[in-house]
């Protein structure tokens, strides 16, 4: 599987930072489920450059998504996120939080999530950051 673009480690880092910081905040999980595009825009403007545990006067100055990444997040496109090398554990954990509640039988979402990735063969996209 050849990615359409070559995400570098730093780009993957910011995708992971989004998944990580949203997943651990129940309010953001709900906002991301219901208004993904708005949440992604807000997060990139307000949170992407926050050094975790540091006050805002010491924020990073250079982190931003590119258009492909921003669109993948805004459309809940976990297949694209996998292709871009977002950490699969982070993506899976957050997306289970978003969509497992709609299951009509146990593991329905988890299984369909895997099926949507069926076209990927080894080696999977690099996840190193």
């Amino acid at each position: 599987m050849v990615p359409e673009r070559s995400a570098d480690g730093m780009s993957r880092y910011l995708l992971n930072k989004f998944l990580y910081t949203v997943d651990r905040d129940p309010e953001l999980v709900e906002r991301y489920r219901h208004e993904p595009r708005e949440l992604v825009a807000w997060w990139e403007a307000e949170r992407a450059n926050a050094v975790l545990n540091c006050h805002t006067g010491e924020s990073t100055t250079w982190l931003r998504f590119d258009d492909v990444e921003r669109e993948a997040l805004a459309t809940h496109d976990h297949v694209k996120l996998f292709e871009l090398g977002a950490h699969p554990f982070l993506t899976l954990t957050l997306f289970i939080a978003l969509f497992e509640r709609d299951n009509t039988e146990p593991l329905e979402y988890q299984k369909s999530y895997g099926l949507r990735l069926a076209h990927f063969a080894l080696p999977y996209p690099d996840i190193a950051t």
Partner: peptide, 10 residues
């Protein structure tokens, strides 16, 4: 173990 990939939850 596979997490977040095509072989998960088999």
């Amino acid at each position: 173990l596979e997490l977040g990939g095509p072989r998960q939850f088999g």
